[in-house]
Design a protein around this nucleic acid. Structure first.
Length: 465
RNA sequence: GCGAUCGUAGCUCAGUUGGUUAGAGCGCCGGUUUGUGGUACCGGAGGUCGGGGGUUCGAGACCCCUCGAUCGCCCCA
């Protein structure tokens, strides 16, 4: 470690190797969110502390221990956002977004929690997020979940299923809570020390205790089904039948809960199946994507009753799974341009501009010995190397070498684009073959393509993606 | 906030019961090769051993403090 270099802040991460997977997650989310017409919103990274503290109420730990709060120069307490929902709710109220209700919004970015870093937990982390605001109808839950399901499928993540529960309306929830307290009170002596304090502070949380003894008790604890009102029950039925109709597979998770009072009805988490590759990568307890209905949130911020649902998913965690699935695009290099003398640099820059204009990836290797430049082109996985030296300059040509076949030709710079395109074809054919993908009959292609197919480089790029 | 383990070259690590100028592999730069990818061989650069203090004739190693990392617990919006 350099002695005079400042260190990064604890719990922050500099993402390098994983960044391509990270970007793939965000791009996929953006693409899918448009299919469902969720509107993109951008939110401030910090808010008045009360925006986040008021919805949480009296819970001491989260507010006092887990929030990244500080005073600004005016003495105002500010907090780096620990989640998206509260800030979005504040914006909904302060900007009069009620006029757009029901409003479907999506966003992503960094969040901050003052936590001890450990596996999969950082002080700055990143989430993708989707909300439907001002929608009391169970159809909103279904659409939101269908979108979440599609995001995961488009990411190529397998072995993760939707775990679903309902917390009912306030009446149902309160009755269930009372029954749980009564049940655990009767077994107080068998509860772990932590769960005894949970019994006082947040009894629902006993249901996801990690203590073995607690888990045994939890197995026989009352479930909410016996306490659901007719309204709450039919709401949940609508959600589940809607999911079935939408082709979203799910599993009932009667002990899945949310601790805070503003949650109502639907609560859900996408969790890796036991023994799946996703579970191996993250551990079977790790939630990949979670959310629920928070009908009671807006009131805590001084707004009118505004039923809403939302979910969030950790980008780092998804990126880990995506890396395992091998679906991330490799961003290979099409052409490495190698000017062999300083005089050739201008020609190299000119050709690079031309090729990049045709959506071909290009890098110029113009430093070090020629041998070294070639080696770098090879390491970068370039499909072709384009050599420009004194001979080429005097004849107005360039030398193009296919780095897989080893053959090279002298040609006019204007022909390089087509040569690279052919090399791209060969490249994709090779990679499909390696992946065991059925290769269509290439000979049939040129006749079927419109004459001007290659005239629009954007089309070509899209077709080969 | 509590607990455990760990910090040696850019990276992965070795370094004996405390003992002379702290090593290896990979990577980087150069040479054998004046305009061509690989391999091999040869050479080079690169460390106040996370930081501070202490014990000792002598500390990378032992003790204390501190910073950081990893993994748990609490918490999880």
């Amino acid at each position: 470690m350099a002695k005079n270099t400042p260190q990064a802040i604890r719990g922050t991460q500099d993402i390098f190797e994983e960044a391509e997977a990270f970007s793939f997650v965000v791009d996929t989310f953006e693409r899918v969110r448009k299919l469902y017409r969720f509107r993109r919103i951008e939110m401030p990274v910090f808010e008045r502390t009360e925006v986040f503290s008021r919805p949480l109420g009296e819970t001491t730990d989260v507010v006092s221990k887990e929030m990244y709060s500080f005073e600004d120069r005016g003495g105002e307490s500010l907090t780096l956002r620990p989640e998206f929902t509260a800030g979005i709710a504040r914006a909904y109220l302060t900007n009069g977004w009620q006029q757009h209700a029901p409003l479907k919004v999506a966003t992503h970015g960094p969040l901050f929690r003052y936590e001890r870093p450990q596996k999969g937990r950082f002080r700055q982390f990143h989430q993708i997020n989707a909300e439907i605001l001002g929608a009391a109808d169970p159809q909103a839950d279904v659409e939101l979940l269908a979108m979440a399901d599609q995001v995961l499928r488009e990411l190529g993540i397998e072995g993760v299923t939707l775990n679903l529960n309902t917390l009912g309306d306030p009446e149902s929830r309160e009755a269930w809570r009372a029954a749980l307290v009564e049940y655990f009170e009767a077994h107080r002596g068998d509860l772990s020390e932590d769960s005894v304090t949970r019994l006082e502070q947040n009894p629902l949380r006993i249901l996801d205790s990690k203590d073995r003894g607690d888990m045994a008790l939890v197995k026989d604890a009352p479930t909410i089904d016996d306490y659901l009102t007719d309204e709450a029950s039919s709401f949940f039925d609508s959600v589940t039948s809607g999911l079935d109709a939408a082709g979203v597979s799910w599993r009932r998770a009667p002990r899945l809960v949310r601790g805070f009072d503003y949650y109502r009805h639907t609560a859900f988490e996408f969790i890796p199946d036991e023994g799946s590759t996703a579970a191996d990568a993250l551990g079977s307890q790790s939630t990949v994507l979670g959310g629920g209905r928070y009908d009671g949130l807006m009131e805590t911020l001084g707004g009118a009753h505004t039923p809403s649902v939302g979910w969030a998913a950790g980008i780092e965690r998804l990126a880990m799974l995506v890396t395992a699935s091998g679906k991330v695009s490799d961003n290979h290099l099409d052409a490495a341009i190698i000017p062999m003398t300083d005089a050739a640099l201008a020609a190299a820059l000119d050709l690079a501009r031309d090729l990049r204009g045709q959506w071909q990836t290009v890098e110029i290797f113009g430093t070090g010995k020629i041998k070294r430049r070639m080696a770098r082109a090879d390491e970068a996985g370039a499909l072709v190397a384009v050599l420009i030296g004194e001979d080429e300059l005097s004849s107005g040509e360039v030398t193009v070498k296919d780095l897989h076949e080893g053959e090279q030709v002298r040609t006019a710079p204007s022909d390089v684009g087509d040569i690279v395109a052919k090399a791209q074809n060969a490249y994709y054919m090779r990679s499909w073959r390696e992946q065991g993908i059925d290769i269509p009959d290439m000979d049939a292609w040129p006749d079927d393509l419109p004459d001007d197919f290659f005239a629009n480089p954007e089309d070509r790029h899209r077709d080969f993606e």
